[in-house]
Write a protein that binds this DNA or RNA. Sequence first.
DNA 1: CTGAAAGCGCTAACAT
DNA 2: ATGTTAGCGCTTTCAG
Lengths: 351, 351
Amino acid sequence: MAPDRRAATIKDVAAAAGVGVATVSRVLSGTGSVSPATRERVQAAARELDYRPSALGRGLKLRRTGSLGLVLPDVTDPFCAEFTAGVLDCARTLGEHVIVDVSHDDPAREAEIVERFAGQRVDGIIAVPSGDAAGWRAASAVGLPVVFAGRVLDDLPAVPAVLCDDRAGVRAAVDYLVGLGHRRPAFLGGPAPGTAVEVRERAFRDTVAELGAVLDEDLVVRARSGRDSAYAAAAGLFQRRPDVTAVLAAGHVPGEAAVLVAREFDLRVPADVSIVMVDDVPWAELCDPPLTVVSRPARELGYRACEVLRRRPATVGRTPPVVLPAELVVRGSCSPPTGMPGAPPRSSRAR
Amino acid sequence: MAPDRRAATIKDVAAAAGVGVATVSRVLSGTGSVSPATRERVQAAARELDYRPSALGRGLKLRRTGSLGLVLPDVTDPFCAEFTAGVLDCARTLGEHVIVDVSHDDPAREAEIVERFAGQRVDGIIAVPSGDAAGWRAASAVGLPVVFAGRVLDDLPAVPAVLCDDRAGVRAAVDYLVGLGHRRPAFLGGPAPGTAVEVRERAFRDTVAELGAVLDEDLVVRARSGRDSAYAAAAGLFQRRPDVTAVLAAGHVPGEAAVLVAREFDLRVPADVSIVMVDDVPWAELCDPPLTVVSRPARELGYRACEVLRRRPATVGRTPPVVLPAELVVRGSCSPPTGMPGAPPRSSRAR
DNA sequence: CTGAAAGCGCTAACAT
DNA sequence: ATGTTAGCGCTTTCAG
């Protein structure tokens, strides 16, 4: 096993085995027929030389690289991380490599990433898009298969997508809250990376209206991106309206802010204020009380996105999006508002 | 912008601009000299054809792909995610792509990933290794630059590494606990993905001894991988020894277990039991009380690992590992043991 | 069953 | 300043 400076090529193997390169290729790729004798010789030579076919030469010839691009707003976000795990799981079964990069929700940066991925000749791209359609339009025009996850861009309905039924999730949450007796639920919006918060806000508004509860505009607050902004928004809400009895946080960032601010203001959860948060994250269960959440199947979403990408070539025209359900996970952060009868519900998920 | 079935090649651009391929190459790579006139023509043609140089052809010629491999135990782990963000940051400045894959701490799978990365001809590999030296020995024998992070394999001292001074971190934590008056601190070990828990246990033992506190073997427990095992270990500890006044959790998984179990057993933190956890994670600050932790600079570690990889070619022989400090972040989960005077310390990190 | 040869897209001499 | 050419490592007809 000589640690040569340069990796062995197919030629080296051919020479060592005393055959032509074509034969080596056949043996190693299992294509065509080779006599058992030569097959054995070739394999021995390959092993001896520690030969590893170059994906470069291969890709050049085959016009596919066996790798796909994944662009996320932020690897650090629990949802994205879980999503990535799903993509990786599926990619593995497909024998594809995954190139990852983060956009930080910056359209320009996202476009640049797509550009670079295209240069790498990835076989396809999976993205939790940041909102700007321009970069993507170019990409799919070039014929690069793209799959969106967690969100569709209205301007690009032709791009296949795997989504989570956020609308239904928010609906369930509001329904739960109102059912508990909260007449004026508050909404704490804030961009949870890669999610359509607007969709949630709309769902919130619609549901509140449908259920005959009161939609108090003063209780619908939005935060800019970032923890601090979410914290400020939550603080503003609680300060301005000490009468809030329930809040629906549109993502884990505003959710954290709500918990923190409630504690800061010495509000007991759920006695003084009930909290529901969209996105289940590990700490939701560790919180005291454990947080009731709308859980999105992040991992599954990732897996499916990857599957869709593989099937993509077969499909032509606009594919209907894959929609996965969101689940309301009732734990301990909600109870009837003060003055109402009824004990705070216990966790519905056994440990 | 004709959406051709096949992407434009350098030849197409050359033809369109009425020049040779070399000229196109020169213009686009900024190498050599070209007359402003032709440069302009070439650029126009490239733009017109929506030309994107193929990394495949380029890589084949240049013998470098501009991409590096990152192998982690688990993308979902907060430490790994943060580490990845650091790698991505640095890779971006270097213009490198990052192929990610997860080993789940399985040596066989890890070896397979390395093998595949080698086939992809990555320019180098960054790994939070899972413990088995075999696969890595092969890789570095082939001349593939490798950098380890968070851990070195004793069998492979020649592989450069970026580490965190876990030992000092644990030392600081134990010192803090003992200083508070805890005579018999407990240690809750458990494999936090990709970390040398043994190192922490050893540091714990050494420090306890040095400080003249009591090293009670019965209070040193280990868990296998996984949340459930950590939970069981913690439960066992608290049950067997209701007299524990302080526990050092060797990672965020055992840390979570400790918090959960303490709550389960109706032990007040820090009044009844003080808790320090290795690894700072978002929820540590959200916990009530906020958890005192030994924080490892995950992101920085990732960034540095990537830097080291770039410099690698220059260096020959064994490089001394880069060691970054661990920081004890005092929040509110520790106080003197019951019966001792002194108020529980407040968070030292302003919000 | 096997080998020779033609590229895949690009860069870097080497001409001109 | 710019064009020609020889590969980089691989797969795949096309002959034999």
